[in-house]
């Protein structure tokens, strides 16, 4: 429990921030707490928050994946291309998910086997995957997908709750169990804390990293398909720039950029904070760029504030000693 205490403290802090934001929003607008607004709030960023779950694994493992948004774009455009070629949509979905796994394996191979830094490899594939997406659809837009595909993205599946939100919930539970309750999850932390030690402890760290990047590719491809279903059309610039929003959410959730620390619960709370904050700002007519700026301030604050507390705590016993 003593190890968990600082974590509980951090999550407690996030929870307090979240409650404050929700209270402020509810006071600002009577529309805020309605079910349709709450679902809408998730729907608008559903692809980002799904990818944030798997990004948590990547960053805890002391790596980074900048290529997620380009993979979302590639998968969405590949779906559009397959659709145009007359491939059965269900088969096309399977192929797109395969592209995700393959792209992730490509990243993983250069990172785990060649030993290149993930920042550089995924920066290159950020450009490269996006490039492939553009090759597939060029400067056209593809739309006219089957009715059921669009419904899956836009309409409620269980009552008013859409498929994507259910997928998010299921994925969260599954990944939570994987990270917090299994050996695979523990290995993710150990490798993130110190890869050399993990190697000496007999963990196949290369294989582990490969799997994590393949997971990242798969989930990103899935999120890209959700985007195609929700918007009903794909273009070469689908999801462009999403990677930074995703990474911001994960870091705000208290996941250490140096790896080895953080939790999916933190990421979930950060997701809720960002979504509610953006929704609240939209309710009072604050536009996109400013919203992103406020989230940026929150990100710096979230790292600075606990640090100030810690240094104050550290100083006190020294004074008593002298």
């Amino acid at each position: 429990m003593t190890i968990l205490k600082p974590l509980l403290g951090w999550e407690g802090f996030l929870l307090a921030v979240l409650i404050a934001i929700i209270a402020a929003n509810a006071a600002l607008s009577p529309q805020f707490l309605t079910l349709s607004n709450q679902i809408n709030l998730f729907q608008l960023s559903i692809e980002k928050i799904i990818v944030a779950l798997v990004m948590t694994f990547v960053i805890i493992n002391a790596e980074i994946d900048l290529s997620v948004a380009s993979m979302m774009g590639l998968s969405a455009c590949a779906f559009g291309w397959f659709f145009q070629q007359g491939v059965d949509p269900v088969a096309a979905i399977g192929l797109c998910l395969l592209i995700g796994v393959a792209g992730g394996a490509f990243n993983g191979w250069f990172i785990a086997r060649v030993g290149l830094p993930s920042l550089v490899v995924t920066l290159a594939t950020l450009i490269g995957f996006r490039g492939l997406a553009r090759v597939l659809v060029e400067d056209r837009g593809v739309s006219g997908f089957p009715q059921w595909f669009g419904d899956l993205g836009q309409k409620g599946l269980i009552g008013p709750v859409p498929f994507a939100l259910i997928a998010f919930a299921v994925l969260f539970v599954a990944l939570f169990v994987l990270l917090q309750r299994t050996g695979f999850g523990r290995k993710t932390y150990v490798i993130g804390t110190n890869r050399d030690v993990a190697d000496y402890a007999g963990i196949d760290t290369g294989r582990h990293k490969m799997i994590i990047f393949m997971m990242s590719g798969l989930v990103s491809a899935f999120a890209g398909l959700l985007f195609a279903a929700r918007v009903g059309a794909v273009r070469g610039d689908v999801a462009q720039g999403f990677e930074l929003d995703v990474i911001t959410m994960v870091l705000l959730g208290g996941v250490s950029i140096f790896g080895g620390a953080g939790s999916l619960m933190g990421t979930l709370l950060a997701i809720l904070i960002v979504l509610n904050l953006r929704n609240g700002m939209a309710l009072v007519n604050i536009t996109g760029h400013i919203q992103t700026g406020v989230v940026g301030l929150l990100l710096i604050g979230s790292v600075l504030v606990p640090r100030i507390n810690l240094s104050a705590l550290r100083r006190r016993p020294q004074k008593e000693a002298t």
Binding site: I247, T287, H289, G293, V295, G296, I300
Partner: peptide, 25 residues
């Protein structure tokens, strides 16, 4: 923020990328 407050550069500049852009807006 990076040198004296010791916040990792990737976090600081990810945030200031958004903040400076919103200042521009």
């Amino acid at each position: 923020l990076v040198a004296y407050a010791r916040v990792p550069a990737i976090i600081v500049t990810l945030a200031t990328m958004a903040i400076f852009r919103s200042l521009l807006v």
